[in-house]
Computed example of a mutant assay.
Amino acid sequence: MIAGPDSAARQQGIALALASAAAFGSNIIGAQLAGQAGLSGPLLVFYRVFIMLALVGVAAALLRASLRIPPGQGRPLIAFGLTSALVGSAYLSSVAFVPVSVAAVVFYTFPVLIVLAEPLLTPARFSPDRLVIALVAFLGVALVVGPGLDGLDLRGLALAMAASVLAAAQFFAAGACARTPLVPKLLWSHLLILPVTIIILWLVGGFLPPQAIAVAPLAFALATGTYLLGFLLQVMALARVAPGAAALAFCAEPVFSVAIAAVVLGERLGPVQYAGGALVVGAIMANVILEQKRAQPAPA
């Protein structure tokens, strides 16, 4: 059966979401290496926003792209920019109170939230099979990350949950501003992200001049480059596929992180992590099959 334009767009969207998850998974490794060299997370966010704005400005000039926002796209674009800024800030702040593994498991409840909220916020119908897939993927993420139950703090749990809710809102906002072309979407969203990162960096008191990047140039390049690629692919994916399907693909992000850490940093994986990774991969494959069935036209 030949796939139609809608089916092809959905398949492209899921593929782009998986590629974005792989980039963001690599980003965590780069951020970890940069942190070990003394470059904090907020500092990385601050400088990568400037780099994104510079690159988008060059692209706009070379392509002679219009920076106008289409009618009716202003509010969802503002929501996308603000949620993009706040989701990372909340997640980053949560690990100051709870272990990273606990924060990650709480944060990756956002695909389940998206599947539950999608029928309320979009024309999509509630899909029990997609909810089952989301729960299986979440179980896989929990097994891969392996949360510890010690050192739990309500402040950390609340921040991680806030990051999850913000991530869900970010996906819906990105879907709502799908008609905004790529270049203005990247430009205006990062112009909204910039003041938020400046405030956060001012609050934590971790500003360092650009010369500080010289202490870990490769780690900075990895953390920045993978973020730029991951964000670009995420925006492209959410312009082609519904938030629920895209969110399930992003469950692969911690799997990529753990796998890359095992190869690059020499971290050892246990049988439980392998089993969790298999659950996530199986859930993503089931999601792809489900999307293909949804895209098939009804028989005459």
Rank of each mutant, 00 (worst) to 15 (best):
L290N: 11
G30Q: 04
L43M: 12
A137E: 13
A223N: 01
V235C: 06
A249I: 06
A286N: 10
I284G: 00
F24V: 05
L43T: 00
M285Q: 13
F80R: 14
L186P: 03
I133S: 01
A79E: 08
D129C: 09
S89E: 10
L166W: 05
V100D: 07
F97H: 13
A21V: 12
G13I: 06
L149S: 10
S93W: 02
V258P: 04
S127D: 15
G205Y: 14
F46S: 02
A283I: 07
E291L: 05
L67A: 13
A90I: 05
A242I: 07
A104C: 11
A103P: 00
L121F: 15
A142T: 12
V215H: 09
A245D: 14
A300P: 14
A242C: 04
A103Q: 06
I200C: 03
G148D: 11
L16E: 06
A167I: 02
M1Q: 10
I289P: 01
G282V: 11
G146P: 11
A60T: 10
V105S: 05
Y274S: 10
A79W: 08
L149Q: 11
V105A: 11
I29Y: 04
I29M: 07
V145M: 11
V106R: 02
N27D: 09
L53S: 03
T224C: 12
A17Y: 08
L44D: 03
T226I: 04
A59D: 05
A137Y: 09
D6A: 15
D153Q: 09
P297Q: 13
Q273N: 11
A9Y: 06
A37V: 05
V87T: 08
A124F: 08
V280W: 08
R64K: 15
R64C: 06
S66W: 09
Q12L: 13
I14L: 15
P209H: 08
R125E: 12
I193R: 00
A19C: 12
E253F: 02
L222P: 00
A31F: 10
P76L: 02
L121D: 07
G41N: 15
A173I: 03
L39N: 01
Q211L: 12
L232F: 14
L182C: 08
I289R: 15
L18M: 13
Q211T: 15
P209G: 12
I114P: 02
A219L: 07
P123G: 00
P119Y: 10
L228Q: 01
I114S: 03
N287H: 07
I2Y: 12
V56W: 06
I193M: 01
R10L: 13
F171R: 05
P195V: 13
V281G: 05
R294D: 10
R155E: 03
V136G: 11
G88A: 10
R179C: 06
L218D: 14
V106H: 04
L159E: 00
G140W: 04
D150M: 09
Q11S: 14
G156R: 00
A176L: 10
A212L: 03
G38R: 11
Y47Q: 09
F250H: 04
H190P: 02
A23Y: 05
A31W: 05
L131I: 10
V264E: 04
L63I: 09
T122H: 13
V45C: 06
V105D: 07
V132Y: 11
A259R: 09
L53A: 06
V98G: 00
A61W: 15
L55P: 01
A54S: 07
G225E: 02
A173T: 01
A31Y: 04
R155F: 02
A3V: 12
